[in-house]
Design a protein around this nucleic acid. Sequence first.
DNA 1: GTCTGGCACTCCTGGTAACAGAGTGCCAGT
DNA 2: ACTGGCACTCTGTTACCAGGAGTGCCAGAC
Lengths: 340, 340
Amino acid sequence: MSLDDRKLEVLRAIVEDFVETQEPVGSRALVERHHLGVSPATVRNDMAVLEEEGYIRQPHTSAGRVPTDAGYRLFVDRLSRVKPLSPAERRAIERFLIGAVDLDDVVHRTVRLLAQLTRQVAVVQYPSLARSSVRHLELVPVSTTRIMLVMIADTGRVEQRLVELPQPIPADDVTDLRRRVNEKLAGQKLADTPPLVQGLVDDCAPDSRGTMACLASVLLETLVERSDERLALAGTANLTRGGVLDFQGTLRPVLEALEEEVILLKLIGDLEPSKTRVRIGDENEIDNLRSASVVSTGYGPGATIVGGLGVLGPTRMDYPGTIATVRAVARYVGDLLAQN
Amino acid sequence: MSLDDRKLEVLRAIVEDFVETQEPVGSRALVERHHLGVSPATVRNDMAVLEEEGYIRQPHTSAGRVPTDAGYRLFVDRLSRVKPLSPAERRAIERFLIGAVDLDDVVHRTVRLLAQLTRQVAVVQYPSLARSSVRHLELVPVSTTRIMLVMIADTGRVEQRLVELPQPIPADDVTDLRRRVNEKLAGQKLADTPPLVQGLVDDCAPDSRGTMACLASVLLETLVERSDERLALAGTANLTRGGVLDFQGTLRPVLEALEEEVILLKLIGDLEPSKTRVRIGDENEIDNLRSASVVSTGYGPGATIVGGLGVLGPTRMDYPGTIATVRAVARYVGDLLAQN
DNA sequence: GTCTGGCACTCCTGGTAACAGAGTGCCAGT
DNA sequence: ACTGGCACTCTGTTACCAGGAGTGCCAGAC
């Protein structure tokens, strides 16, 4: 059976009230706060159906109703319009992001901003290397048999690794090496580099091939394979809002999950282009986060995506507002990156 | 009046029992668990004195006694021997730290190790720039009027900043600039560089002075003044051990404080050479941490100190064990850095 | 068919009272 | 200087009760 309009309206009212008050909502309060034009008894009948269908439940007999994960899901998918941001929020975003001096700063400001605006835990992934391109590769002789490899990506990220050489190398050769490497790789997407790196070794004169091979392996390992996606986190203190009620009594599992970078990356990493993703409660694959919801999206200059960002909070969260904020921040950060 | 030996012994017993059980300890339990050779009544008299002196207190009339901050202080200063680490712990440290591939990795492993061993929140400061020396400065032309400045410190830290030039600069001049800058600064302690940087500008030919001044200001700003000491954090989930009892009911202020890098740096940053510092409860200047204790120390290769590390937990913590662990980890990390 | 008012029922909440247990302070006695 | 004894105080638990909120269901109205 399908739910008629009024039942959906009742569900929306329940979600909105519960999000606001944090308390199970009963039929009387509902008709009073939202002018539904029907009596409590009618609402009760609707509620019975909604409960039957699994969208709401009662904590105990004769308590009000509380949305289930499925209820939130329906709410998000069909019952809510994304709230436009207030001018104050827009201003806050702009004020926060202009004046960032480097990439680190951008990421840090962004994550704090996001945490502050949504009043939840915010996560921002650094622009992913795999999706960036090489701006420049620098080779710095540290000793005769060691050079420091520094890669600068177009997003501003910088990565460095020490390369141990099999044999001493004269300074002039380093210059030559630098030129050759840059000619081949500068401007290329990192994801496209592996065959090019291989080409570099193949094109090499036999006497310097050992050195180049060595360099190449570090290049591959560091810049491509090693998926050390960094990220920034802020707003954990927001978990304590709403007392012990959210997260079924204990922050423990949530805090644990937040410490695992791998988990966080999985959370905000699955990016579909320009789509905001909402995972509600049980929809999270991570057991520790079964009592939490995650709103995430990708960001990047223009239409390309170089990283993800998002927020995590109790399932009882203001989805429309949060989604709007996450999207807006992502867009601003993308624009900011595009300016470089 | 001074406290005689038995009173001190009673205090020690109270601290130890309370740390273990988390419950106010009464006179009867005390004589049973520690063979003090006197009756409960006697212990009660001693307790009355200890309370008079401010070392213990009763949560309410006719509850057992609980140590005050002053009590813990006395315990740490005079009543406890630093516990030697168990062989298992030593092995854990070694196993954890070997295999670190770069500085980032070392710091991350260290902070997790520390959190795991002490079962508290761990903080590790990256090797401070101010205390490091310059290994190499690299200048990378990004466009004709922008160059990327990359500094590599002897601790392995790398910092980069973009420099906007007042006028276009030919590639050869960049090479020259790089040589001059390195000749002057490579190998110098960062703290010593400001006058040297000034010297660079003064020695410059007038036509390139504008460029050099520009570079110099970024150098000063970025590498010296900007005290963007980074740090790593782990083990926040440990705050939830001991239920809501520790931290007087709410993690809120503690989590907030942990988000402020400035605060954390202050906590573990005040380093006196090779001394372990213990701040107990109210001794913390930060209001949010009045219910917490911090054990911190400096680390670095040999006798020099390049950064701080430490742990934060409830005042009710195992001080001897924690102090021992913090020291041991700091020493191992120092040795590790010395190997580079 | 759909909605509504009424009613009995369930369950949570808060307050009170009673009680056992733990711990103390103090005092007189060794 | 220590100890046993005793009265006192406070907590935590349990039981109980009344009040309130909310439901489910049913018979009747539109």
